[in-house]
Amino acid sequence: MINSGMMTRSLKGQMIPICVYIVMAVSLNLVVGISGELSLGHAGFMSIGAFSGIIASAWLHGALNVENETLRLVLSMIVGGVFAGVFGVLIGIPVLRLRGDYLAIVTLAFGEIIRNVMNCLYFSLEGSRLHVSFNNPNIPGTLLVNGPAGATGVDKIATFTAGFVLILFTLLVVLNLINSRSGRAIMATRDNRIAAEAMGINVTKYKMMAFVTAAVLAGMAGALYGLNFSTVAASKFKFDTSILVLVFVVLGGIGNIWGSIIAAALLTVLPELLRAFADYRMLVYAIVLILVMLATNNPMIRSLAGRLFRRGGVDTTAQGGGADQ
């Protein structure tokens, strides 16, 4: 399809970001929809994944002479996922003790801290040695990550095939998790924390499981994203990016994994096709976000939807799936 001229050039350039955003949306949906906690710092994990992936790729190339690009890409994505996962654990331990609004604002704070700190970090590669410095660009070797300017001169080794495989991997992990015993435990803690605790479910453990899985997936997506551009700056992963992914999740239906995929793919492509309305895009997103929330919480519309989709009852309850209902 790519080579047969069925796609325009701009769409071809969009294929990898589409994959990345699909993975981001699905993984955020695991936190927001399945585990019922609003995370506003998802782009932070993407950022960690992107930078650790870029550094890993350069290090594999420079130090270990790994020439095979596919191998390098896969290893870099794994490194990105692992680093994001480690940060997911570090952030999750304090964050998941909080609830509701506080949890949201703290994830936001962590996202901003990650971005701020990345703006001050410098990484360089000298032979096979990796140098790190804080706020000091004068380090030996070639600079890989250059503080506020971000990573420059990145090998663009990301491929659409890798993105597609990553989506499949994400779906495999997330759907298996949801349909497993652990997934049911996660949803039970979402629906009623106290009842779940009374049933002997370790709430923190299962919330942590969802949070860290999402972080790992976001890190892998981030690594793919980072290796798709020749320059990546930390400012790319700001609060707006987290909100964009949240918009995908809300529009696809909170708790609805397939909806997230469709919403992420459509909303990444649409702005390219509707360039003339670029100014109004975020405005429309904002209005749609408000309207969807008002509509899904309107008792009249909910009962109507319940009657229309009686068989899909699971979906309608998941749509309103709340933090502490």
């Binding site: 904002a286 929330m293 709340g322």
Partner: peptide, 21 residues
């Protein structure tokens, strides 16, 4: 009467609405 999650997402929507307007 809605959940905290819904209210919070709406508030974020309002925030973006004002910024973009």
């Amino acid at each position: 009467q809605a959940t905290k999650l819904a209210v919070l997402i709406t508030a974020i929507g309002v925030s973006y609405f004002l910024q973009n307007t």
